[in-house]
Design a protein around this nucleic acid. Structure first.
Lengths: 248, 248
DNA sequence: CGTTGAGTTGACCATCGTCAACAGGAGTGG
DNA sequence: CCACTCCTGTTGACGATGGTCAACTCAACG
């Protein structure tokens, strides 16, 4: 569906069997410096490594469900993961898309609070929550880092509230494209095309729209030469006008 | 406008002159056990107290602006504070309402990221950010508490995303009333009436609606005997049907 | 070559926004 | 004490943005 190797060199991390200890050591980990692990020195990393397990998740399979008790926490090492909440009647809100380096289980509450499903093949670094928490207790730098990450997520969530509460469909899509591009740019050398590993329905569920409105708006942007549709993504033709639509 | 003493016994904390050191010591603080300060023991509280200043904020006055550099952080000791973000064209999103015990400045980023304005007379415990951060560095329990609070806020923000992205006007209002009631119940013995210190426009800006839609929906709820309008608030008549509208 | 699933497009419609008028309370000043 | 204004909130009429329903294309896959 979407070739992650084009997007993130990180995807080249050697995959290992689900649940097994992995040959890739932390000090060779390609997301270490952007993940929460960046807070640790070499010794501490070794400690963390002893409780780490690696997992490969196939596209469209669940990592965890929102109602699950969070016995584990994760760091994503490659791929894209969709985070969402469902209403009983089937309506869905995608609260975010997680990329390599992102941490899942920040809440340290007993439940995850949202479901996670892989959009691409993904590799995760998995930690038993109890053991992770115990380790965290002894590493103030790690707690600080977790808090830093959590408060950054909170700021992003508040921006998303503005998008959902106060913007029109075209502004929402423009915001999404601009923000997505910024995130990917941080992870890889700037590429001419912007990969969109998520489907139209996922974008709609993220922006509080329907798939039809997303499709129409994408088509309109393409007609107006703001973007160009390419397989599994878009090419941004007029970043300036796109940013103007996205305002702030 | 809205008599806080009816709502929160916390409002009876003796106010002191803006910016002056306050006579109320931390160990007599009525929000201590629900605030971040709960993470500290008596000795540590004394240290915190040395860098605390108290401030009284009048209704409708700003505590800080979203673009301000965050030189200070705050704990609310009484009153209600509106937290919001503005778009250049005047559209506004209220990202939350802060109550006694709530902490402002979690981000520990250089800017606040949202504006804060008092809805009622409010009293705040103010800390110089640098000094607070320095203190935090030496108190792992406090960092953990800050992270706990931040991740709880994140979970709330994600619920708000569902409300804004996927719910109809009446469901949004029902969610808001249910959640607001839960928060107030935690702070005070259950009262028959639910005070709403914020105006209709604030509710609208929080729920991604217009003032007219909020007004109409409140009227409809009253007509259908879900709630009863009272001065500066509502009385919930049928909590069950209200919760059913709020779903999850 | 038929099936499936994602995406696109059109026609129509409902929810909610816009605009406008009005009600009622608080504060002000004659 | 009574006009007067101001502000918030309410209600109605109308309209637009975006949702609903449906048909269609196209690529992937057997």
């Amino acid at each position: 569906m979407f070739d992650t190797t084009n997007v993130r060199p990180l995807a080249s991390v050697k995959p290992c069997h689900e649940g097994s200890a992995c040959a890739t050591p932390c000090d060779a980990c390609q997301v270490r410096l952007v993940s929460v692990c960046a807070a640790l020195d070499v010794d501490e990393l070794e400690q963390l490594e002893t409780i780490a397990q690696h997992a490969v998740i196939q596209p469209r399979s669940m990592v965890f469900h929102e109602a699950d008790i969070a016995h584990t926490v994760y760091t994503i090492t490659s791929g894209t993961v969709k985070l969402y909440k469902d209403l009983p009647d089937g309506r869905r809100q995608v609260v975010g898309f997680a990329l390599p380096g992102d941490f899942l289980g920040l809440a340290l509450a007993d439940r995850f609070g949202f479901s996670a499903e892989a959009l691409t093949k993904a590799t995760l670094c998995r930690f038993d929550r109890k053991r992770f928490t115990t380790l965290v207790e002894t590493k103030p730098a790690l707690i600080r880092r977790l808090h830093q990450v959590a408060s950054h997520e909170l700021a992003l969530a508040q921006e998303q509230m503005v998008i959902l509460g106060r913007r029109r469909a075209d502004e929402r899509l423009a915001c999404f494209l601009v923000r997505w591009r910024e995130r990917l740019t941080r992870l890889q050398p700037d590429s001419p095309t912007l990969p969109l590993p998520m489907g139209r329905q996922d974008i709609a569920d993220h922006l509080g729209l329907t798939i039809e409105t997303v499709s129409r708006t994408v088509s309109r942007f393409a007609r107006e030469r703001l973007i160009l549709n390419v397989p599994d993504g878009v090419r941004v033709l007029d970043a300036r006008r796109l940013a103007a639509l996205a305002v702030g």
